[in-house]
Design a binder for these strands. Sequence first.
DNA 1: ACCAATATGTAGAAATTACTACACATCAAA
DNA 2: TTTGATGTGTAGTAATTTCTACATATTGGT
Lengths: 124, 124
Amino acid sequence: MASFTTGELEVMQILWEEGELKPAQIQEKYPRPIKNAALRFQLKILLEKGHVSRRKNGKAYYYTAATPRKGAFKRMVQRMADIYCQGSCAGLIAELIKTQKLSDEEIQTLRELAETRQAGGTKS
Amino acid sequence: MASFTTGELEVMQILWEEGELKPAQIQEKYPRPIKNAALRFQLKILLEKGHVSRRKNGKAYYYTAATPRKGAFKRMVQRMADIYCQGSCAGLIAELIKTQKLSDEEIQTLRELAETRQAGGTKS
DNA sequence: ACCAATATGTAGAAATTACTACACATCAAA
DNA sequence: TTTGATGTGTAGTAATTTCTACATATTGGT
């Protein structure tokens, strides 16, 4: 009831980035060749599940994401934390900082980000 | 060729944590009730795909993870960065620090972690 | 009003993932 | 060596996900 299949996610990504599109336009942006009818099938599923909505304009239906990107992101983060870090998001972030390749500037940015949050959270 | 199905991942998680187990033992640790034969089917798939190996000891086969946890983690991180942060892992970490609920201590820990990496990267 | 281009709807097939039932194999103990 | 507990192998079923083919509908220009 929460996570997307691969195909669904490919469509949602496009809608999150592009806004309102009709099937033929989504098809063009699709990361791999896909038949129009196959794509429309994905849209049908997403519509039934309530993840997209559509609106008729001229001849065609235009689709938009109904499920926000942010919520989907949160669920995926939590899932990953569950799998790899006993459910702890902080643990996940720590693991990422420890293991990912990061340039000096990127680390500096992250550090500043943490400091900012710290300053904002406590009352100066 | 890279990512696990839900069922496969549930098995891999147990093997990553516990080491070498026989089917009945994995079955006990499984996050939800599962029939012995159903579990063994998952193991069969994982074996065919090369994600686990097995070794006979006494009556039973004992299974171990052949695909390392670390690699699977990296792939999942990259996938998530691709979907939500234009492929940038640093961007992903930044997004996490910005959006996740974190206690003061957790933020402090992350900050220290970043500082440590920074100190270690540049020559003191 | 008609036609051609563009869209849509639906039934069914293929591929993947997940599960079940049951017959057969192996080891240890009497 | 028979017996029973434990473990294995395999064939068949179900559910989900993905794709295809084709008939039908809608719109704008003539």
